[in-house]
Design a protein around this nucleic acid. Structure first.
Lengths: 233, 233
DNA sequence: CGAGAAGTTGACACGAGTCAACCTCAGTGG
DNA sequence: CCACTGAGGTTGACTCGTGTCAACTTCTCG
């Protein structure tokens, strides 16, 4: 796992605006943990006992219903702060975190992160900002689930993925991560069958190129139209 | 507006656990503002310039789509902290706040609340706790919108209202606030017609008594069953 | 090359939204 | 005091988007 072309962690949500010394001290306090694909990092309802930052890979944050249904709330990649509520008082986790692919996370047990947020107020600010951002995203999601069609939601999910893990290729923007139909369907809150039909239709219309575990966006504009206008936070 | 039988504000989310002096000082820094029914207190997307606490009445927090559709995110009554993001750095409001009935709110402009949260850490903790609670509620709502039927959602909305503004009467629990079908439908994320049909059916089954702007829950147990099991946070 | 995972496609059912017509009260002004 | 009016609510008919299930195809990997 050579630290090749990865953007430096110093530059991610948790460390933005901190002094180099604070960054070094905080990083030194972390341990690193590897996760297999499908492995669970923490369970909804458990007490929060650590703060995490995604080093590599991709985590799925989901809610499970009492009947065992699972709803993907969001997925996060490198640099994302996870379980930010760790810096608040005794709380339980609102979601379950699972690795979608083999991943690696930085771990700060509460006992180690709490003194640090006291010492470095910027750290606390960054975590709280993340929580506020997630709040806004959740509210937007509620609105989308209430008013948008499945087509719009799938289109918006693709736009999000393109923005987050898009890579420019000859034909357009490749979503640079294995993306199964089921996974996309979970993100958009629909069934695999409906997602499959939508992708097939859009591929016919020249909006996308699709393949096994693979999507290339050929026309961002058309996709934005399908999503019902460009991003609205 | 005599301070009749209202539970004391000292006892609400913002002040829990504070010293009496801190409560007095904080209350002294607030101004009070009256709102007509339907009046807007703040608009989604505006910069947050104040923290509010509901004194009397009821506010609706909603998200509006670019096309003008409106989705009720939640409604709050006496004692609720609103626009808690005010204590974070420069942010915009994630929702619009509107009075459902003539209401009264306490107002702390940012410039006045910020020094107070520094002076009284308990104040900050209380606001952050509220934000975390709302986060959890939003995630639960996302799950419900994704997996529950409209019937379950309406039942759950009624349970919430009964818990929040329920008053025991001879026949059961009266939801002690004017509750139009449209309003209930908005809360559950459905149409007025569907809400009306559901209420009519449940009234037939003896679960509810319904009338113009009025609902009485006759059997909490049956309603919980309809909601798909008792509360699951 | 075989087996299983991933994806596709058609047939079908059904929940819930939409619209129109209608009913029924509460409040108002003559 | 009563008739009128309009908001609130109900109900039926209809449509349509999506979920479900089954059968089938096509990759990928060991």
């Amino acid at each position: 796992m050579a630290p090749d072309k990865l953007p430096p962690l110093e530059d991610t949500a948790l460390f933005r605006g901190l002094t180099p010394e604070a960054v070094v001290e905080t990083l030194a306090a972390a341990t690193s943990r590897a996760l297999d694909a499908g492995q669970t990092l923490f369970l909804q309802g458990e007490p929060v006992d650590a703060l995490y930052v995604v080093e590599t890979g991709r985590l799925k944050l989901s809610q499970v219903t009492p009947n065992g249904d699972e709803v993907t709330v969001r997925t996060v990649g490198r640099g994302a702060i996870v379980a930010g509520v760790a810096i608040l008082d005794r709380r339980t986790l609102p979601v379950t975190g699972t690795a979608l692919v083999p991943s690696r996370v930085l771990v700060w047990p509460r006992s180690r992160i709490l003194p640090l947020v006291v010492k470095h107020p910027g750290l606390r600010i960054n975590v709280l900002e993340t929580i506020a951002d997630r709040m806004q995203a959740s509210l937007t999601r509620i609105r989308e689930l209430s008013t948008d069609s499945v087509g719009q939601r799938v289109a918006r999910a693709l736009l999000g993925l393109a923005r987050e893990s898009g890579r420019a290729v000859a034909e357009g923007i490749l979503i640079d991560q294995p993306l199964g139909r089921q996974e996309l369907a979970d993100l958009a809150g629909t069934s695999m069958f409906t997602a499959s039909r939508l992708l097939a239709g859009w591929a016919r219309d020249g909006v996308l190129d699709v393949g096994r575990q693979r999507v290339v966006v050929r026309s961002l504009e058309k996709l934005e139209t399908l999503a019902g206008g460009p991003e609205q936070p």
